[in-house]
């Protein structure tokens, strides 16, 4: 039986919403935390999907933005909790523990860094693009490791989760709600953008830069903007992830994380609206359930990934809906 893709999308979103509500009723807060983790990873991968899925930019350095989001949260909250000032040359701040402010800073910073990385990386393509983005990722990783002021290798612990007006973010289900709403808003924006003129041009730029140039559009500029938006979304996810764990460390910058984000997208379906979400759910479920049984759970993930790459190029969505997806 073949499913319409939008019914599948709706089904997954509703399922992802109902699971923590059920867990709340059953008093199983850990399940809520798992669902929150899946939602946040999904958000990070939705960001990457914009660059990788529509724009064909296989970024192997998206952990940079995830980490920047994380450290934006970590640093601002650290100064707020220790009552110290953070001085940034011209102006000083006492940090903050307000989530909306942290999100804004995380998105602006990661967007700005994405602009610089994109500007340099987009001069290349193919394997070189993968390698240069990886190199940026490693740069940030090693920088974070040696950044003693903010914990270096050990990372930074934030003792109280940051606040959101009107909600008690320490209650797992309320924090889940925040993350879920942000994911849904991002998905709506992603869907609009994908069908908009900009999305059409970006989609065309993935397939043929010369075609886009021949109609008088600058393909590099289109891709660069997509890369910036992509970095900002992944940065937002990084800030949420840090808040979920109340901890930031250099592993948020690690290349393994960049790789995982790519894997999530491939599992779900490259360029599909819900591809990253389905990928993240499968990933977190495997990590948890198989991880309890064996330390070698990554093997099963590898096998699934292998099967999808070999037999179902549209990812799980492609397999279920029977439609070929965008190929990278």
């Amino acid at each position: 039986m073949k499913f319409e893709e939008r019914y599948l999308n709706l089904f997954v979103l509703v399922g992802l919403l109902l699971l923590p509500i059920w867990a709340q009723a059953m008093d199983e807060p850990f399940t809520i935390t798992l669902a929150t983790r899946a939602v946040i990873l999904a958000l990070a991968a939705v960001g990457l999907n914009l660059a990788l899925g529509i724009g064909g930019m296989v970024s192997f350095g998206h952990a940079v933005f995830f980490g920047i989001g994380g450290y934006a949260m970590g640093i601002l909250a650290y100064h707020a909790q220790t009552y110290t000032t953070l001085s940034l040359g011209l102006f000083e701040t006492g940090g903050t523990n307000s989530m909306p402010v942290i999100w804004l800073v995380a998105m602006l910073l990661s967007g700005a860094v994405a602009f610089v990385i994109g500007l340099l990386s987009l001069r290349t393509s193919g394997v070189y693009f993968i390698m240069i983005t990886l190199a940026f990722g490693q740069m940030f990783y090693y920088f974070a490791i040696s950044w003693a002021q903010y914990g270096g290798e050990d990372g930074l612990s934030i003792y109280v989760r940051n606040g959101f007006p009107g909600l008690n973010t320490l209650v797992p289900i309320e924090f889940f709600g925040i993350c879920f709403v942000l994911l849904c808003v991002t998905l709506v924006l992603f869907a609009r953008l994908q069908s908009s003129p900009f999305g059409l041009a970006l989609n065309a730029a993935r397939q043929s830069k010369s075609r886009v140039a021949a109609v008088g559009l600058n393909p590099t500029r289109v891709k660069l903007l997509a890369f910036v938006l992509s970095g900002a979304v992944t940065g937002l996810a990084g800030a949420l992830f840090a808040d979920l764990n109340r901890f930031v460390s250099p592993t948020m910058f690690s290349w393994q994380l960049s790789g995982e984000l790519i894997v999530l997208i491939i599992i779900g379906g490259v360029g599909r609206l819900m591809g990253p979400v389905i990928g993240a759910c499968v990933f977190v479920a495997l990590e948890h359930f198989l991880g309890e049984i064996t330390d070698f759970w990554h093997v099963s993930l590898g096998i699934i990934l292998l099967c999808i790459v070999l037999f179902g190029r549209g990812g799980l969505i492609g397999l279920i809906t029977g439609k070929e997806g965008a190929h990278v």
């Binding site: 003129p197 900009f198 041009a201």
Partner: peptide, 16 residues
């Protein structure tokens, strides 16, 4: 895509 180029309408993000 050609129309987009002709009308310089690429920086539109919302309407299909």
């Amino acid at each position: 895509l050609g129309s987009l180029g002709a009308e310089g309408a690429v920086w539109r993000f919302w309407k299909s």
